[in-house]
Amino acid sequence: MIQAASHDAPSSHDHAPPPATFTVRVLRQDAPDQPSYWEKHTIVRENDMNVISVLQRMAAQAETADGNPVTPVAWDCNCLEEVCGACTMLINGRTRQACSALVDKLLVDNPEGIELRPMSKFPVLRDLMVSRARLFRALQKAKAWIPVDGYYDLGSGPKQSPADQEVAYPLSECMSCGCCLEACPQYTKIELTKRDGETDAEFKARETSAYDGAFIGAHAISQVMLFNTHPTGKMNAGERLDALTAEGGIQVCGNAQNCVAVCPKHIPLTTSIARAGRATTLHSLKKFFDL
């Protein structure tokens, strides 16, 4: 390996040069019904490493710090550019994307090494892989789409002011990563197991109803506001507000504001929640008087 050029460590004048190797502790779990356990790996530091490349090196090495052969750690990723949302995990205790977590920075903050854990609010499939099916189910429940007439050529979309576009665009950057849910005190883990004799369809239905009964989450509330302010989406605003006032809706939010602090896309979640709160109140009143 070649020596790091002197500028590679951020603010290297303040700190000792980066170490030649470092330790990674991973919380592993072989399957959903198995106990979890810690495993330690030693990685040779290279330039420009992020946590993804650490996991890649671990897979290629296939042995622990003590030299025991082990299976590669399972994890989820795709874009490696922090736009697909796949690689969310807990890195040194913080919920974030592995692809944008730079090793040198992590080592400056925590010279002992790096600790990796799966997200705690979703069922672990294996190691750092979790099932975020509930997160996507919330988007179905919220009817997070524009119900267009069809895909024939019916001319252009509605005009929109740049100001409205500037409000919509950040909300539309939500990559369904789940950080906001991991950080939310009101969002608690739901993990069901298939019962004996239950068919796949029955299990899926039971799971969906469990998801629907629990908190929908900040990401979905924000998506409701995205679609409810779109000139066409607005026409069905009521249906989406119904989803937010149903069981597991916006009333569950305790306004802890953890979500907004961890969103990697800096989506103004608490603004969305406040707007949704006002809209649902009005919506409920209106429905009450219409009855």
Partner: peptide, 18 residues
Amino acid sequence: INLMDRLGVPFNRTPEGF
């Protein structure tokens, strides 16, 4: 492009809204 616009893609806008 028209279809994608109708589906809600937040395309950048001109001052007039196009």
